[in-house]
Design a protein around this nucleic acid. Structure first.
Lengths: 235, 235
DNA sequence: GGTTGGCGTAAAAGTTTCGTAAAAACCGTG
DNA sequence: CACGGTTTTTACGAAACTTTTACGCCAACC
């Protein structure tokens, strides 16, 4: 089945380690984002939603335990600590501070990958974000991956749902056609704008939205689309 | 569950190790049950509900990986493997077979305790899930590992049950095909999607669910499966 | 007033994914 | 070593989904 790649954030100051991890994890189908400092890592973790974070405790700019606490505090993603320090106290401190695992360098990449799979397995059951977006008669349940109209369940195809969910992530805001094409089809399809037109047409039918006076999916000619929601703040 | 002392099952053939663990864990407020063989351990795990299982892979009566698989499918408790073997392949195999952690002997007791706390932390979310799930005529008893239709007991194979139980753990929510394959067969089988199709087909027959208009196991083409439950249009 | 470019719709053709059955391989047990 | 239960392989028809192709609409612009 086609499923989007788990997103992994790597926080490590050593360029070589990052490179190694990027290649190793990338070949396993993970989407990688890198940070070289604690601050940068915390920043990234706050902005985007990751499925897993790999954290080196020996960062130059901040105390490792502090970074760990910050991460654990503000995001849901499980954190695996990677460190050169083997001391038991160090491990206990990290694990009690919220890390889900502690791996000492040098590590076998196959073991690390296995432990990452465990962490993702565990993290999958925790994600209980009650994210729901209401737009007129329509309710979009991002957690359950369901859409209903006036309480009645609607069946959307994978693409249709992906499109709607993308708009629902930034309610009321315009998402450019280019952005949508890249995210849903890939960079190669950047210019196949008619895909969007067909998709939107079918979607509006299912949602019961009149294209002339759209109350849900609004077209911004030459720019993109936006999802109208309850408290819409017209720009 | 969390208010009482967490119940820990120790499966290890060495009396000395058991004694050591019993004392160490006991002093931390855990309730301990011991088993000296694989069979005994599996038996106990099936009967009583434990919060955590500590498993030594070097048992005399059964292959460690077999014990692990049995435990992982039969009960919901997280399993921490304790072993003298340090080989990376050994670790990867155990983690992929369902272990939540792998600790090599000799180990520091404080680290083990910390890892136990992590495992319990992770297991807590699973415990929060309902022990019984009702879906139409079907009743799934996750605590007792039983499934019945209109009060009549159904016999499911280990895989069939594991599949259904996984869906029941997150009622109404989609579980991706990839996730199911990884959890039920292992990461190597990530792409053998036809396993799922065959399993679901047999399962639907047993459950009396029409594939065209499924009221129990719903297919989300290209994504995965979900179990429909009573509160279908949940807020 | 005609032309052009972006948009919306419909139906087809093409591709992927799903469901099922039956045979073959596997596995612990008697 | 044969046996019953289970899993895996193999194969194929049906359904769902995506992409192609074609055409009508409207507004802006020359």
């Amino acid at each position: 089945m086609t499923t989007d790649a788990p997103r992994v954030l790597i926080i490590d100051d050593e360029r070589e380690i990052r490179r190694f991890l990027r290649i190793s994890l990338g070949s396993q189908g993970f989407a990688i984002v890198e940070a070289a400092t604690g601050r940068e890592g915390i920043e990234l973790a706050r902005e985007a939603a990751f499925d897993l974070i790999l954290l080196d405790l020996g960062l130059p700019d901040m105390d490792g335990q502090e970074v760990l606490k910050s991460l654990h505090w503000q995001c849901r993603a499980p954190v695996i600590v990677v460190s050169v320090r083997e001391g038991e106290e160090e491990k206990v401190a990290a694990l009690d501070a919220g890390a889900i695992d502690y791996v000492t360098k040098p590590f076998g990449i196959r073991e690390l990958l296995a432990r990452i799979r465990v962490a993702l397995r565990a993290g999958a059951s925790v994600e209980a974000a009650p994210a729901q977006v209401l737009a007129g008669e329509i309710r979009i349940d991002l957690a359950q991956r369901r859409v209903s109209r006036s309480g009645e369940e609607l069946h959307l195809t994978p693409r249709e749902y992906a499109f709607l969910a993308r708009l629902a992530q930034t309610p009321g805001r315009i998402v450019t056609g280019r952005q949508l094409l890249i995210e849903l089809w890939g960079p190669v399809f950047e210019h196949n704008t008619h895909y969007l037109r067909i998709l939107v047409s079918r979607l509006r039918q299912k949602l019961g939205d009149d294209p002339r006076t759209p109350s849900l999916i609004q077209t911004e000619a030459g720019i993109g689309y936006r999802l109208m929601v309850e408290g819409d703040t017209a720009a």
